[in-house]
Amino acid sequence: MVIKLGRPTEVVGKNVLKVDGIPLATGQPKFTLDMDIPGALIGKLLYSPHAHAEIVSIDTSEAEKVPGVVCILHYGNVPRVPYTTAGQGWPEPSPYDTVLFDKKVRYVGDRVAAVAAETEEAALEALRKIKVEYKILPAVFSIDEALAPGAPIIHDEPDAQGIYDAQRNIAAAVDVPVGDLERGFAESDVIVETTCEVPYVQHAALEPHCVAVYFDEDGRLVIRSSTQVPFHVRRIVSRVLGIPIHRIRVIKPRIGGGFGSKQE
């Protein structure tokens, strides 16, 4: 299709200079961690080595003795507030099936504890000294396993909200009816039915997920985050921490790639 315009265009159909091309090529833009906050602590997370397990006990006594360690958080000393991690609109359509730290881990890499320390070295040493006793639970590793009768129920917590069918491990469902399916089948000359499988993928952004947090001179919580949607961050943090949303400010600086993964 050809569109004829009655006058010459100034932008459409013309090459234009990228306004931030030269600054990006010369390393000038500031990303999330490209700032120095005097006295800031370093946060590190302890992750689960198991796909499905219950935390029987967690001992942080030795980790707390590491010089420079200021705080260690886990399921035993933080409020339990269910929330959704999905960065979507409001009302939030996804289930509230996550808490800050749970007594149960549901995948390899699930959060177990967090350490805040004066240096990265102290935080990492403290992580190594946290002792966790796990009760290994049966896990599921495919859609078919998860849906099978008698499969381990991954989300069996009573305070989760909005899970579509927890007994069958279906977190959410989307129904988008388009046209008359039965009529389409009836009028088709050939019907091809198959099952396609794709591997697990993850967006590989150059910049990792990162955040710097501080209180400003007015006592507001300021979150400088590599997020794609600051409004989602502010809403979810407000719910989890119990801080009024107007007392939270989220700054989204230049992002080193996101592709949707930093919408969560």
Rank of each mutant, 00 (worst) to 15 (best):
K4A: 11
G6M: 08
R7I: 15
P8M: 07
T9F: 00
T9M: 11
V11Y: 15
G13V: 09
N15M: 13
N15Q: 13
L17D: 06
L17S: 13
V19K: 14
D20S: 12
I22C: 02
T26V: 13
D36T: 09
A40P: 14
A40F: 12
G43H: 05
K44S: 13
S48A: 05
H52N: 14
E54D: 14
V56H: 00
E64Y: 11
K65R: 15
V66Q: 04
P67Q: 06
G68C: 09
I72C: 09
I72Y: 07
I72P: 03
H74C: 07
H74I: 08
R80C: 12
V81G: 05
P82V: 10
P82R: 08
Y83M: 03
W90A: 14
P91N: 02
P91L: 14
E92I: 12
Y96E: 12
Y96M: 10
L100G: 00
K104M: 08
V105P: 01
V105F: 02
Y107W: 15
D110L: 00
D110A: 10
A114H: 02
A117C: 05
A122C: 06
A126S: 11
A126I: 12
R128K: 15
I130M: 04
E133A: 03
E133F: 04
E133H: 01
K135H: 03
I136E: 15
P138V: 03
A139L: 00
V140C: 11
V140D: 09
S142T: 10
E145L: 02
G150A: 11
A151C: 02
I154M: 10
D156Q: 09
D156E: 07
E157K: 07
G162D: 10
I163R: 04
Q167K: 15
Q167G: 10
R168N: 15
N169P: 00
A171I: 07
V176Q: 07
P177D: 13
V178H: 11
L181I: 12
E182T: 05
R183T: 14
G184V: 07
V198M: 14
V198C: 15
Y200R: 15
H203N: 13
E207C: 03
P208T: 01
V213W: 08
F215G: 08
F215E: 09
G219A: 12
L221P: 04
Q228G: 06
P230M: 10
V233W: 01
R235T: 10
V237C: 11
V237T: 13
L241I: 03
P244A: 06
P244N: 03
R249G: 04
I251T: 09
P253W: 11
P253S: 02
G258L: 06
F259Y: 15
S261L: 15
E264A: 08
